[in-house]
Simulated scan of single mutants.
Amino acid sequence: MSNETILIVEDEIKIANIVQEYLQDSGFKTVCIDNGSDVLDWVQQHPVDLILLDIMLPGKDGLQVCKEVRAISQVPIIMLTAKVEEIDRILGLELGADDYICKPFSPRELVARVKALLRRSSLRQEDHEDWHMDEERYQVRYHGKTVNLSMVEFAILKLLSASPGRIYSRSQLIGSIYPDNRVVSDRTVDSHIKKLRHKLADELTSKELIYSVYGVGYKFEFHA
Results as ranks from 00 to 15, higher is better:
Gly144Val: 08
Glu21Met: 12
Pro164Asn: 09
Pro179Lys: 10
Leu57Cys: 05
Thr205Leu: 02
Ile15Cys: 08
His128Asn: 15
Val140Glu: 09
Arg113Val: 03
Glu203Arg: 11
Leu209Ile: 11
Lys103Glu: 03
His192Phe: 13
Arg141Asn: 12
Trp131Ile: 09
Val48Arg: 08
Gly175Gln: 10
Ala201Asp: 11
Glu4Phe: 11
Gly165Met: 06
Val184Ala: 06
Leu118Thr: 06
Thr81Glu: 01
Tyr218Trp: 10
Tyr168Arg: 12
Gly144Glu: 09
Ser106Met: 08
Ala97Asn: 05
Asp99Thr: 06
Val39Gly: 08
Glu126Pro: 00
Ala97Gly: 05
Gln20Lys: 15
Asn148His: 13
Gly144Trp: 01
Lys103Asp: 01
Leu63Ile: 11
Gln125Ile: 12
Asp34Ala: 13
Lys60Ile: 04
Ile156Ser: 01
Lys195Asp: 06
Asp99Ala: 13
Tyr178Leu: 06
Leu63Cys: 02
Tyr178Ala: 06
Asp61Cys: 01
Ser37Met: 08
Tyr22Asn: 11
Glu221Pro: 00
Cys66Phe: 02
Val75Tyr: 09
His128Ile: 01
Asp34Tyr: 03
Cys66Asn: 03
Lys67Ile: 05
Asp49Tyr: 08
Glu94Gly: 10
Leu173Tyr: 10
Leu80Tyr: 05
Trp131Phe: 14
Arg170Leu: 13
Asp127Leu: 07
Tyr138Cys: 14
Ile33Tyr: 02
Glu85Asp: 14
Ser122Met: 11
Leu91Tyr: 03
Asp61Val: 01
Leu157Tyr: 08
